[in-house]
Every structure is written in structure tokens, then in C-alpha cells.
Design a protein around this nucleic acid. Structure first.
Lengths: 149, 149
DNA sequence: CTAACTGCAAAGGGTTTGCAAGGGT
DNA sequence: ACCCTTGCAAACCCTTTGCAGTTAG
């Protein structure tokens, strides 16, 4: 198991590189967060905190939150739902909702068309579920933020 | 404009009906929340609270939250992101993330294929944005919850 | 060496809960 | 009349902030 560290370093490096490239320092706390983010998909900030502290008890809560914010700023990590931290609802019978959300200024642009509707039948069959609605969000940089770079 | 009230009642009734059908009482507070949810798309719980209290100052914060939870339980309203109320992140280079989320038991089923990727070019052009990732969530009832009904 | 970063603890703020009063059915 | 529902306010808990000590570069 002497090479675990090395093996990890490799998968980890793209996020760390993004940090360096943006002028941020690579520290133990940030390495720990990157390590946790590498190891799995979608998770809440709180879950990341727990995992980081399980493996690196010395790392403080605040550093995890701060690192997630930075990783998100350099686009090494995708925040869901606007980076807002609260519950969102929409009327069920109003069909589906589609947004483009700017990672930089958080502007939201809504649009209607959607190819996801075409997936509904297939997914219902394959998973044996009934689908009642869906949400599609694209993340990126809006026109004015692109211009400002 | 004499018929605004009536017109509203009509669009509103499906949510109220869902409440009744599930054995919940139809009260002034719940009517106010339904009215707010009818009038627009995606919004945060806090925004719903604000709108309800703007038009019906007598309605308490707590009732709005409680009503949203009930509407969500009877599938008259779609909560985003698992009904969880916190920020979620995922590694950006792991591509996009797609979930089916059961409205009843909150089970999450992940899957890979996605037609949304095909929309990226079109949306980038039309909105003049750069897209870096996306999130697609389907909401409904899972196999075992369907069986249990 | 120095500015960036950290951990801690306390503050912040949206959401939930306990309880006595109120209102559907 | 019954008991579900409400409004209030306090409790809750995740997240953010202020600060003095630490560390990457």
C-alpha cells in the first residue's frame, strides 16, 4: 500500500492544477477536500465536511466550505442550484423547468425546449418508475461574463 | 377584470383537490400558498414565504413551510434536489449527473445516458453562453413506492 | 519574509418545532 | 364538538465570518 498516496496524487492533480493556475496555494486542507471530491459524485457540502474530517480530523469545517467555494469559482467543481443553499419548489403541473446558470455572476436564464422529455418513456421502462417531472440545469459562463474575461 | 378571482380559483383547484384527496383540510393559509405556487415557476421556499405574506400578512412563516412540505408529499409541487435544503457539489470533470428521485421515499437512482448533451451546442449559440456542465433530475415514484400504493 | 491560509468559536440566517388558540368538517 | 391546523417565537443546524497563529512560495 506504499503507493496509495502517489496513485491518489495523480487523479487529484487536475483540481489542484486548477487551483494553482488561478493563483491559489496548495495546502493540506485543500488537498483533503480535493481528495474527498475525487472519490465520489454528487454530495452535499455537509457530507464533504464529514468525509474530510473522518480522514483528516485536523481540518476545520470552515476550510472545507472555503475550499468548495474556491473550487467552484475555478470551475473544478459544479455547485447545484445556483450555489443557493435552500430548497426550491415549482408547481408540479407546470411541467419541467430549464435553466442556464452562470457560474460567475449567478444570472439565471430560463428556456423551454428540452430533449429530456424524450427520455421519459425509456427511463420509466428501464427503472420501473413513474416520472412526474424533471429539472434540467446547465452551468457555465453567461455572455457578459465571457466578455469580461 | 371582474373574473380574476374565479379564473384563479380554477387553476388553483388541482392542488387543493390533491390536498383534499389526501385527507388534508383546505384552509386559508394553504389556499394562500397554493395561490403563490400557481402564479410562477421555480422559486425558493423563502420567496414563497415572502409572496404569501405580501398578499396575506396574517399567514405565518411556519404554515408556508408546512404547506410546501404537504404539497410536495401529495406530488402537487416538485421539490428540487431531494428535498434537501443544502448546497450540493460534484467534481466538474466527472461530467454530468443524472438522477431519478422518488417523491415519496427519496430514493435516488443514478443513470448515465442523457440527451441533454445534444442541446449544449444549440443553447450556447442561442444564449451566447459557454456551458461547462449540467444536471438532469427526474422526479416521480420509484418501483417499490408504486407497488405500495 | 510576507501575504495567503488555517482552525476555532461565535454569529448569521433560513427552516423546523412546541404550544396554546383557532377553525374546518 | 373534535381534532387538525395555525401563528408565534424560540430552537435548530448548516454555513459564514472575524481573528490570531501558521505556512506555502
Amino acid at each position: 500500500m506504499a503507493h496509495d498516496g502517489k496513485a491518489h496524487e495523480q487523479t487529484v492533480s487536475s483540481m489542484l492544477q486548477a487551483l494553482k493556475a488561478a493563483g491559489y496555494r496548495v495546502t493540506a486542507a485543500r488537498r483533503a477536500v480535493v481528495e474527498a471530491m475525487q472519490s465520489s459524485g454528487h454530495r452535499s457540502a455537509r457530507e464533504v465536511v464529514e468525509e474530510v474530517r473522518r480522514r483528516h480530523p485536523g481540518v476545520g469545517r470552515a476550510s472545507v466550505y472555503r475550499t468548495l467555494a474556491i473550487l467552484s469559482k475555478v470551475c473544478a467543481v459544479q455547485p447545484s442550484l445556483l450555489g443557493t443553499t435552500r430548497a426550491h419548489y415549482s408547481a408540479a403541473d407546470q411541467g419541467s423547468h430549464h435553466h442556464f446558470i452562470c457560474n460567475r455572476c449567478h444570472r439565471v436564464i430560463e428556456f423551454d425546449e428540452c430533449t429530456a422529455a424524450g427520455m421519459v418513456g425509456d427511463i420509466e421502462q428501464r427503472l420501473g418508475v413513474r416520472i412526474q417531472g424533471h429539472l434540467l440545469e446547465f452551468y457555465g459562463l453567461c455572455r457578459s461574463c465571457l466578455a469580461a474575461m
